[in-house]
């Protein structure tokens, strides 16, 4: 027999989070709530003399399945919230009525059955379960193996995105760039040699004018560059010195 306290605990831990499936707006919240449901069910299994199954429940559902759900939620957009507004006329009320009716039907059927409870049940210890699984049901287990492998393969196939075009070689990329009118020559690197050799300063052309395109566009937008022309004067001054020297000679 099961302690009533345990039952009611399980009931609350499962039913109330399960209701979030109907009413919560964020899928992530729901997934978290369902994890709780799964744990509650694991408790129930243990309470029902199926400790191995309880462990498997935790491992498979909370550990694997629900985590998979969360991954997928993240993949498809974790921040999406869903409007609870119904779009199909009458769907909500009919669906709720039917769901309640379904529950009521099952409960009424079960309650009418004359059910007795075995006082000496077999406890689902791992060894016991294993002897069944690899004894009478070994064929089923093997088939399930196939099922799992197929499922894994299936998932791979379904999520695989085929390459739409053949991969381009470096030569092709280059040719395409030239064709698009790109400059075949290397661009000037930013920085003024030996003066301000940092990325924030544009390079200077031989005339001493700054080459704006050499600076990262991002830095420019952020306003983190410095004006290259300030080095111009410096340079010209130096040139004068040098030039004068040359002129002198």
């Amino acid at each position: 027999m099961v302690s009533p306290l345990l039952f009611w605990f399980v009931a609350f831990v499962t039913v109330i989070p399960a209701l979030s499936l109907l009413f919560a707006r964020k899928p992530v919240h729901v997934a978290a709530a369902v994890v709780l449901v799964m744990v509650g069910l694991a408790v129930a299994y243990v309470a029902l003399e199926a400790p191995f199954l309880g462990a498997v429940q935790i491992i498979v559902y909370t550990g694997a399945v629900m985590m998979l759900f969360l991954f997928v939620l993240m993949l498809v957009g974790v921040d999406k919230t869903e409007s609870l507004k119904e779009t199909i006329t009458g769907q909500r009320w009919v669906a709720l009525t039917l769901a309640v009716g379904l529950g009521a039907l099952v409960i009424s059927v079960v309650s009418r059955l004359p059910l007795s409870v075995n006082e000496q049940p077999v406890v689902g210890e791992p060894a016991e379960v294993a002897s069944w699984l690899f004894g009478d049901y070994v064929l089923v287990v093997e088939v399930l193996g196939f099922v799992l492998i197929s499922a894994a393969l299936g998932a791979l196939v379904l999520t695989h995105v085929p390459r739409l075009y053949p991969k381009r070689t470096q030569a092709e990329v280059h040719a395409a760039r030239i064709a698009a009118g790109a400059n075949p020559v290397n661009q000037a690197f930013p920085g003024v040699y030996a003066r301000h050799n940092a990325l924030d300063a544009p390079a200077l052309d031989p005339e001493g004018n700054p080459i704006e395109s050499s600076v990262s566009r991002v830095l420019k937008v952020r306003g983190q560059t410095i004006d290259g022309s300030e080095f111009k004067g410096d340079t010209q001054a130096r040139r004068r010195e040098l030039g004068a020297k040359e002129d002198d000679q």
């Binding site: 199909i88 769907q91 009919v94 669906a95 039917l98 769901a99 009716g101 379904l102 039907l105």
Partner: peptide
């Protein structure tokens, strides 16, 4: 209608 949920609803109705 092509709406999965309507089909599901009808299925459930039929089952019930």
């Amino acid at each position: 209608s092509g709406k999965v949920r309507s089909y599901a609803l009808l299925m459930l109705l039929g089952f019930l």
